[in-house]
Design a binder for these strands. Structure first.
Lengths: 123, 123
DNA sequence: ATTATTGTATTAAGTGCTTAATACAATAAT
DNA sequence: ATTATTGTATTAAGCACTTAATACAATAAT
């Protein structure tokens, strides 16, 4: 899973989202140790300060915790991760429905379009 | 339709999106005259330079055109607007499906969730 | 003819994000 | 005991975006 960073939004917030995603999808498993700030920064081709900023936020949210000098770890609270996953899913759906509704599509049309495009994407 | 501007992304690109949306959804009808740059800027609580930047981009894309000092107008090309609308819809669906898939949901689950949340949102 | 409105351009200042280059303290590894 | 690695903090610089304050030319409105 490569790091996808665009220049149209602050990098640190994109990092937050992608690390959240990695935690929710199991790329960084429950309780596992993360690479060091410097290693993560290098992986993502980003300044260590920027990576640190993202990690600090995730720690503040309780998704990560630090053991002073032994490194940083993913929370062992399964429930918290499930909640984050559900929150993200709900947000994605709401944003999507809002945008499509604003564009003038009704519910039936939305389901129809999503089905069509999903078929296209399978190929 | 109020202007929704957040601080986590360049304002000018949010303006582009929202004006595009207003054109696609008929808030600014085919061939109609837009408010002046200064008026639009005031409506959106934004600097005229920033609004100008957004309008210039939309003009470059062909969605708007300028009559030197009589003002700025929406294109009369129905087809172009339809194309934009379809492009936006497709992009929204693709982004949505990508995010949900990354989170670990399969197609059935996505349809199920979207149906549930759509029901909730009707209330 | 005069005035107001149109789009457009310029300059200077402020802000937030990012990077680079360090440095420090704590502790794991040797 | 020494060394390397950990997270963390600081300072300075550069960049893009935004705002404020103007100004100008063209033309619509009066």
């Amino acid at each position: 899973m490569p790091w996808e960073l665009k220049s149209d939004r602050p990098i640190y917030s994109q990092l937050i989202e992608q690390i959240e995603l990695r935690i929710c999808s199991g790329v960084y498993p429950l309780g596992s140790k993360l690479p060091s700030v410097r290693d993560l920064a290098q992986e993502a081709a980003v300044n260590p300060n920027t990576m640190q900023r993202a990690l600090a936020k995730l720690e503040e949210d309780g998704l990560l915790y630090t053991n002073r000098t032994s490194g940083r770890f993913v929370t062992e609270d399964v429930n918290m991760i499930k909640q984050v996953k559900n929150r993200l899913a709900k947000e994605h759906v709401q944003v999507f429905l809002k945008k499509m509704t604003e564009l003038g599509f009704d519910y039936e049309e939305i389901l129809s379009i999503i089905t069509t495009i999903a078929e296209e994407m399978k190929e």
